[in-house]
């Protein structure tokens, strides 16, 4: 493990009112890691991911980005977010813009890039996800899988250090799941650092370098995919994975 740590989560807890969703979470993501977070619905996976991007404010604990605590007061959160991309379950493409504009607006307004430059890199990433022909379409005119691929291109166009995926295929029908996972596989091969919350077990097993299993707001078990899927130690992990193995 010689790679530098990009994100470290230390003693992170999150409560909505009295309802505790995350309890004392610790984990580390190094450069080039593909970390998959698996677990049942309601186990806190998405909340953890949203905390990492500060879309939810952690109740206690720290999130270190290159050893700088971003939960501190006075930290420029928008600037941090521009370096940590996020892909949502519901895509969240900007409905008032075309596909191309969706991939350019962050570059021109946040990164203050020139239009030509932004156009160039938007086209590069749209081509990568196979959506270049659709630059003039609006989000309402394309399918779910296509939307998600555009959303990935939008996030990539910001050239983030880490890309977070919050159940990127859960809102898609089976046919479209494949096209999105294919894009993500390519990104993993290219060495992009990714944290992926997913229900696609086969994908998690094949792609990830590290798997985290969450249950009831804590990290129940973590390890390499071989360890976790091959010989899970905890009872909860075994029970959760048995459905996947038999199914």
């Amino acid at each position: 493990m010689g790679a530098d740590k990009v994100i470290e989560v230390r003693h992170l807890s999150k409560a909505f009112g009295k309802h505790v969703v995350l309890k004392d979470i610790d984990f580390t993501v190094s450069s080039g890691d593909v970390t998959c977070i698996i677990g049942a619905s309601g186990s806190g996976k998405s909340t953890l991911l949203r905390c990492i991007n500060m879309l939810e404010t952690p109740t206690t604990g720290e999130i270190l980005f290159h050893e700088k605590n971003i939960t501190d007061r006075g930290v420029n959160v928008p600037q941090y977010r521009s370096k940590v991309g996020m892909v949502f379950q519901q895509f969240n493409l900007f409905n008032n813009m075309t596909v191309l504009e969706n991939c350019m607006v962050g570059q021109t307004k946040v990164l203050k890039k020139k239009k030509e430059e932004a156009h160039k890199s938007a086209m590069y990433y749209l081509e990568k996800v196979g959506m270049a022909p659709y630059i003039n379409a609006r989000p309402r005119q394309i399918s779910g899988g296509q939307k998600q691929r555009v959303a990935i291109a939008r996030a990539l166009a910001m050239e983030p250090e880490v890309l977070l995926f919050d159940e990127p295929t859960s809102a898609l029908d089976p046919q479209m799941v494949g096209e999105v996972l294919e894009v993500m596989r390519t990104l993993a091969k290219e060495g992009l650092t990714m944290i992926i919350v997913t229900h696609e077990m086969a994908f998690a097993r094949d792609v990830s370098s590290h798997v985290v299993f969450m249950a009831d707001g804590i990290i129940e078990e973590e390890g390499t995919p071989e360890q976790l899927f091959g010989s899970p130690k905890k009872a909860k992990t075994q029970e959760f994975l048995s459905r996947f193995r038999n199914g």
Binding site: S82, N92, L93, R154
Partner: peptide, 8 residues
């Protein structure tokens, strides 16, 4: 959220 996630 989409806008915030790209740093706006």
């Amino acid at each position: 959220e989409g806008a915030m996630a790209i740093g706006m």
